[in-house]
Design a protein around this nucleic acid. Structure first.
Lengths: 219, 219
DNA sequence: GCAACGAACTAGACACTGTCAAGATGACGC
DNA sequence: GCGTCATCTTGACAGTGTCTAGTTCGTTGC
């Protein structure tokens, strides 16, 4: 009851507006989103969104923040399903989870990296994005502790891993990838790419450098 | 002389408009670009851009097409500077060239992947993008012929390589990367990431699978 | 030399956008 | 009951993309 302080008129307009953003992005891309269209989809007046989110950038930032939370959920879920080990399998799971999120929530993904359309100073937004990135760095650190990095810089490995899955997701979403590649299931493609990375870059600890990842081939 | 058929009034308005797009994107991002602002920067009336490019999407598509041509130039230049071999060094050079382009022409790069703001059916655009992608697949094919792929799918290797450099570029441009990483020179970061990939994924041909990339470490 | 032509560009209008200021509505504490 | 205040509406403003109709001015045919 006291939870509904904010909800007498409409029900939960902020949530309804965020849902309207999703369908608007799905219909016409981020550049096709307008506050007035979002308002129309939610059945309210044209300036209701600005009242709750301040501006168009504020609305999109809130949507992007929700996206980072969904991303973290997807990554955690996928990592939990993998066998806990020295972090390497978990890193591949993070990659799969990242792409799974991007493909499952293309509208969120698209908005999350449109920084020029967002409010970059928003505290909740940066916190959500920091939290998601922390999942990656923590896992890379576990790989390092387990001797999986073979002397490589954890920073370079983390950036490479992030770039790989981010690039794959972005290219897939943009449609530029599906025109060219035979593998039409993005999740299987993500799994193949993630496994390739982990297997090649993070083979089980050998003597000094990467020595043998051969027994990982048989998946 | 006869080359200037198109140029009696202004000089070369299409080129001037494309240059105006670049500065407009640099100032306010893609979402800050307006046809009227571009026209103002070029010193012409508000509807002159539409006359030459049809629409806003047409103008941005022409700008993105020029971007793909610049990308191909940058990649070719960087690859030519590397010692021609079995393709592996060339692949790393392509990665460096890709990021060098993205960092050197952030406005073009930003527009090139904003497919929802472009005219996807434009023939010159798709031709330019195909040509750029062909440089990558040809190099991966040379690696395969040289036994550098160790039985991996050329398609997966090509997509991984592209995703890696594209993701790195996109994250760098978005500003999300520079907040977190100590290495502040994107070209050195690109070189480190490209070398990591080539060294780990495409070690010199060994017995069967990736066996030893150790002697490549000392660069 | 000179008109007809056509490409390059301008000027005006339209519906649409984001944002702001002011007003209306209705649930809540007292 | 009644003031209070967050929720939401209404109306206005400058700015936008695109369309139509006009104007300017080299080039070409004669």
């Amino acid at each position: 009851m006291s939870r509904l302080i904010v909800a007498y008129h409409h029900g939960d307009l902020p949530a309804a507006l965020l849902a309207a953003v999703e369908s608007a992005v799905a219909d016409g891309g981020v550049s096709g989103v307008s506050l007035r269209d979002v308002a129309r989809r939610a059945g309210v007046s044209h300036s209701a969104p600005a009242h709750h989110f301040g501006s168009k950038a504020g609305l999109l930032t809130a949507f992007a923040t929700a996206g980072y939370q969904l991303l973290a959920e997807s990554v955690i879920k996928e990592a939990a399903a993998s066998d806990a080990g020295d972090g390497a399998a978990e890193l591949a799971a993070i990659g799969r989870g990242y792409v799974r999120f991007a493909v499952g929530h293309p509208a969120h993904f698209e908005v999350m990296f449109r920084l020029d359309a967002l409010d970059p100073g928003n505290a909740e937004f940066t916190a959500a994005s920091e939290a998601a990135y922390g999942l990656l760095t923590a896992t890379v650190e576990r790989c390092r502790a387990a001797g999986r990095l073979h002397g490589r810089s954890p920073e370079v490995v983390a950036v490479s891993a992030w770039s790989l899955v981010h690039g794959l997701s972005a290219l897939w979403i943009s449609g530029r990838l599906s025109e060219r590649i035979a593998e039409q299931d993005p999740r299987r493609l993500a799994a193949a790419v993630s496994d390739l990375f982990v297997e090649a870059v993070l083979p089980p600890p050998g003597r000094d450098a990467s020595t043998d990842g051969k027994h990982l081939h048989d998946r």
